[in-house]
């Protein structure tokens, strides 16, 4: 079994009126089963409203399924006694960097997590140092987080999660509010953590460009799992992706169009170099 596993998970958002009587029920997840292996890099793609954030919130026990089961490191997340151990194993990074920074100095912000779980003081500082080192933020240790760029703030948020020594990190659209430079910074940091430290990564995004680092991609649509597979296989299905309201990078789209016009170009092109090579081979 993987480090994160969901088994036929469904979730309803329920609206209750002032008397506490159920008024409206909306199904946000429907029969979702995913399995994430330890050390892997998994991406969850989906349009706004596809249920991807709802799914993410299940992965560290912020939400418990209405039906089905979620296990994190073998623990059932719906059991009260598992909630805190689950959150320790599965750290979460959210979209808005400004909403998750709480301290006046970077190092204190990163220390907040380990302090909360009762790590002894001298170990806390060791962990903070390590986490800042791994996210490339060591030079900013004594800085005020308010003065950092968006990408740097997100790296501090990632460091804060890392300092709790989680087995996996779940990132819910961590780059949605960043400029292209900040976006690259964050994604490269995450990919490196996965590769060098073996941290399991679940990246939720609607930018397809960010998915190229992933080993496995899940595509969500209307609360259901619509596609899954390695990035290249997913990217080769351009029309299906467009149907799920997902944009395809210019290069992948161009390769697809050229192929449709009769050129002998392979499916699932991800980079400009690959396409240039494929076109040169046509000569």
């Amino acid at each position: 079994m993987g480090i994160i596993k969901t088994n036929h998970v469904s979730y309803d958002y329920v609206r209750v009126n002032d008397e506490g009587v159920e008024e409206e029920k909306e199904r946000a997840l429907e029969d979702v089963s995913i399995d994430v292996y330890p050390g892997s890099f998994v991406a969850i793609l989906g349009a706004n409203g596809s249920g991807k954030s709802t799914l993410a919130r299940h992965l560290n026990a912020l939400l418990a399924p209405s039906e089905g089961t979620v296990w994190v490191d073998g623990m059932d997340t719906s059991k009260e006694e598992n909630v805190f151990p689950v959150r320790r194993e599965a750290g979460m990074v959210f979209q808005n960097p400004d909403n998750q920074i709480i301290a006046g100095i970077v190092e204190e912000d990163v220390a907040f997590g380990p302090e909360n779980i009762g790590v002894p003081t001298k170990d806390i500082w060791k962990r903070v140092e390590e986490a800042l080192e791994k996210t490339g933020m060591a030079a900013y240790r004594m800085h005020s987080p308010n003065r950092l760029s968006g990408g740097q703030k997100q790296r501090v948020a990632i460091a804060g999660t890392l300092a709790m020594h989680p087995k996996c990190i779940i990132l819910d659209e961590p780059t949605a509010m960043l400029d292209p430079g900040g976006r690259r910074e964050v994604i490269e940091t995450v990919a490196e953590l996965n590769e060098k430290e073996g941290v399991t990564v679940v990246l939720i995004t609607h930018y397809m460009e960010e998915v190229v680092y992933a080993d496995h991609v899940f595509v969500m649509q209307d609360g259901k799992l619509a596609m899954e597979g390695p990035p290249r296989e997913i990217f080769s299905k351009v029309e299906e992706l467009q149907k799920y309201k997902l944009g395809v990078p210019q290069i992948t789209l161009l390769a697809h169009e050229l192929r449709k016009s009769g050129l002998d170009i392979p499916e699932g092109i991800l980079s400009e170099e690959e396409l240039a090579e494929a076109i040169c081979r046509l000569r």
Binding site: D179, P180, G181, P249, Q250, I251, L253, L254, E257, E272, E273, L275, A276, I279, C280
Partner: peptide, 28 residues
């Protein structure tokens, strides 16, 4: 810290490799 659209780079690359393509394409 900015860039051109992806296809612009492709056209530059192809042109450098001897293809007779214009290098100023910006859309698919």
């Amino acid at each position: 810290g900015l860039s051109a659209p992806q296809v612009t780079y492709l056209m530059q690359d192809l042109s450098a490799q001897g293809f007779g393509v214009p290098t100023d394409c910006i859309t698919v």
